[in-house]
Each structure stands twice: as structure tokens, then as C-alpha cells.
């Protein structure tokens, strides 16, 4: 089992290295204003996909924890939420930079409440509240269950933003109402890197997440067995 784990982890690392090389070295069509910032596609978008995947994993394990009460599920829900926060912050940062120098070039705007941006910010706030809630419990069993309830309860309100926010302000993202879809505007050479990048980032999530879960296990064992 351990050897297979190491193998998959190493494949992810090599894969990510190749992907990053491809992202910076391959020649891409130059579009006015967008220019080389288009390469951010390989990072920004997969980061969001990864965050969504991590959010789903976290919600899944929260539900499992409520059903079975297993400590393992609680650890997994927490660690997945942590890695989701990491990817969310990275996605937000790359998005802010990217939009500042393309969509909002010459306007000095850093944050413009694009629907997707707002949604991501809300999800990050929910995780922030989730971590704060966790830290206000001493007793692990209670902490796990209450945190799982909050995770699920707060998360179900996020999809509403999909319905409400676009009415507030139109999104500038591709595929949003009236904008050309991703397929129509992305050159084939970019897809060659983009799809592997999505896989690679999800793989990276898997590595970070499993390492954190293992770490949490070790910590758990140390605290429950002070002699160790």
C-alpha cells in the first residue's frame, strides 16, 4: 500500500512539473490585452475546479461523519476543507491579478464583485467560520458533530448565489450569460496543457489532502497515547 501511495505521489509531482514547463514554454497565440496572461488559464481555472472537488469531498465526509460518527470522516472533512481553502485563496489571488491587468486594465479596479468571485469569497468565509467554530470546542466528539452540521448547513446556501448574483452584475467569465464558451475561444495548443493541468491540480489536492490526513492520524495517536 505504501509503495503504491509513493508511486502515485511521484507521478503527480512529475506530471505537475511537466505541466508547468508546458505552461510557460509552449507557444500560444497572442491576443490583444490578454497577451501572455492567457497562461494563467492553466493555473487559475484548475485551482477552482480543485477547490470545488475539495468542497464536495469535505461535504461528503461531513455527511458520513454524521451518519457513522467515525473520527476518520471528521478528520477527512476538516483536512479537505483546509486544502479547499488553500486552493480557494490561490484561485482568488490568481483571479484578482488576472482581472486587474486584463478586464480592468486602466481602471485601477482590483475587486469588482464578479459573480464567481463573490461566490468563492462566500465559500471561503464559510470555511473561515467553520474553522472558528471548531476551535471553540474542547471535546472532540462534540466538535466533530457540530462542525459537520455547520459545514453542511452553510454549504447548502451557496448554490443560491448562482441564481441571485448574475442578476446583480453580469459575469465577465467565459460561458457566463452571453459570453463565448470556453471551447469557442481557447486555442488547441492551450487545451493540450489545460486538461492535464486540471488533472494535475486535482492530483496535487489528493497528495496534500492525504498527507494532511496521515499527519492528523499521527497527531491523534500521539495525543491519545502520551507514552509514545
Amino acid at each position: 500500500m505504501n509503495r503504491r501511495y509513493t508511486l502515485i505521489r511521484n507521478v503527480v509531482f512529475v506530471w505537475m512539473t511537466l505541466m508547468i514547463l508546458g505552461a510557460f514554454l509552449l507557444n500560444i497565440p497572442r491576443i490583444n490585452i490578454l497577451e501572455h496572461t492567457a497562461r494563467n488559464l492553466y493555473f487559475h481555472v484548475p485551482m477552482w475546479f480543485t477547490m470545488m472537488a475539495a468542497v464536495l469531498v469535505s461535504a461528503w465526509y461531513s455527511a458520513r461523519h454524521l451518519k457513522t460518527g467515525s473520527v476518520e470522516s471528521d478528520i477527512r472533512a476538516l483536512q479537505s476543507a483546509r486544502v479547499a481553502t488553500l486552493f480557494g485563496v490561490l484561485g482568488l489571488a490568481t483571479g484578482i491579478l488576472w482581472s486587474r491587468f486584463t478586464w480592468y486594465v486602466g481602471t485601477d479596479v482590483w475587486w469588482n464583485f464578479d459573480p464567481r468571485q463573490t461566490m468563492a469569497a462566500v465559500q471561503l468565509l464559510i470555511y473561515g467560520a467553520y474553522f472558528v467554530l471548531r476551535s471553540s470546542f474542547d471535546e472532540p466528539v462534540r466538535r466533530g458533530r457540530i462542525a459537520a452540521v455547520y459545514n453542511l448547513f452553510a454549504m447548502i446556501t451557496v448554490p443560491f448565489l448562482l441564481y441571485i448574483l448574475p442578476r446583480q452584475r453580469a459575469s465577465l467569465h467565459p460561458g457566463a450569460d452571453g459570453n463565448p464558451a470556453f471551447d469557442e475561444i481557447t486555442a488547441p495548443v492551450m487545451r493540450l496543457v489545460f486538461y492535464p493541468a486540471v488533472l494535475g491540480f486535482i492530483g496535487l489536492f489528493w497528495v496534500l489532502y492525504t498527507q494532511r490526513v496521515r499527519m492528523a492520524h499521527i497527531k491523534n495517536r500521539l495525543t491519545s497515547n502520551p507514552e509514545l
Binding site: 462566500v122 468565509l125 467554530l133 451557496v158 441571485i164
Partner: peptide, 25 residues
């Protein structure tokens, strides 16, 4: 939820506001 917490403080606003954003808008 917060009635079960051991360190209480002003937890409710922190938990409430993010999930209230769709309603608020």
C-alpha cells in the same frame, strides 16, 4: 450549535453572515 460550544463569545454573527449572503442580497 453555539449553545454546545465551550468557548462562546460572539460566535453567531461569524457563523451566520456568510451563509446569509443569498438572503441578504
Amino acid at each position: 450549535l453555539i449553545a454546545k460550544a465551550s468557548a462562546r463569545g460572539p460566535l453567531l454573527p461569524v457563523l451566520l453572515f456568510p451563509m446569509l449572503s443569498p438572503l441578504f442580497l
